[in-house]
Nucleic acid binder design. Structure first.
Lengths: 145, 145
DNA sequence: AGGAAGTTGCAACTCGATTGCAAACTATCA
DNA sequence: TGATAGTTTGCAATCGAGTTGCAACTTCCT
């Protein structure tokens, strides 16, 4: 997304579009896989870790981004694809965490299966993350055993 | 489970049944909801945090227990229900994390929906955790708004 | 019994993330 | 324009979960 688009998205979500927030959102929009705070820090050299952390918290609060744990030990962040105010959980895709290369990827074509909860439970979001071995590592493995 | 049963389970999984490991496994077997390292430490006063941590790592390795992230910031552990060597992911239940009381509970009747992965991906395990508001907190909320 | 291997507790450390605080910036209004 | 209140940012310190190095202890085997 362009800087302008990011700015517009922030305003649309009710967030004051500061330089730092635009940079964080734009970086997330450019990526093809979810990013951790650490990765964002490395890719946004001009911003401090704490500034990125606070920006992410604000973007999360205003539903401009999602977060989830993939088992890597750090929380992953991803821009919210849906432009609607409430991003329906059933529209969201699942993630795959490779235990060999420790990379998380989006399985964009596979949507999160939404379970029917018992009476009384209110669903906010679902973390559906598959752990295993990705095709690349799988191939690498079978070549040199 | 009795001490003897825990010991047998450890031996069956190929783990030397030391006092610490039996205590950790037994504590997990007694609980109705998953426990964090911190909780286990509090409930097992005679054992050191590091001993519990190492025991959990070993039990995980030998598939006597499962672990998953619920978004609380700490990893949760749960005894493996299935007595079979490989605990099939489709037999496992989903979890619910309440964002109000920050407690994780098992939804024993709801099994993890298993997605079909694209060619080349090897599935090891799935983390399916729903976040939201539990019935108790929901009720409490509606009483005093 | 004696020695090797495995296990445990303590303290120190690692790592991801957050917080307190002061400086810098922004918006608003006189 | 300049004063001022409110917001945002960067730095350093801190937090909290978890792991590791090491020495003491236990278990196992002959």
């Amino acid at each position: 997304m362009s800087t302008k688009q990011c700015e517009d998205m922030l305003v649309g979500k009710g967030v004051r579009p500061t330089a730092a927030r635009i940079l964080v959102l734009q970086k997330l929009s450019e990526r093809t896989s979810p990013a951790s705070l650490f990765e964002l820090e490395a890719e946004l050299e001009t911003l401090d870790k704490s500034t990125i952390s606070r920006s992410l918290a604000l973007l999360l609060e205003h539903h401009a981004i999602h977060s989830f744990e993939d088992g890597s030990g750090s929380i992953k962040y991803e821009i919210c694809q849906s432009r609607s105010e409430t991003c329906p959980v059933g529209d969201r895709h699942i993630h795959f965490f490779c235990e060999v290369c420790r990379k998380t990827s989006c399985l964009n074509n596979i949507k999160i299966p939404v379970a029917q909860l018992p009476e009384g439970y209110i669903m906010d979001t679902i973390n559906y993350t598959v752990k295993g071995v990705c095709p690349l590592c799988n191939k690498r493995r079978s070549l040199k055993p």
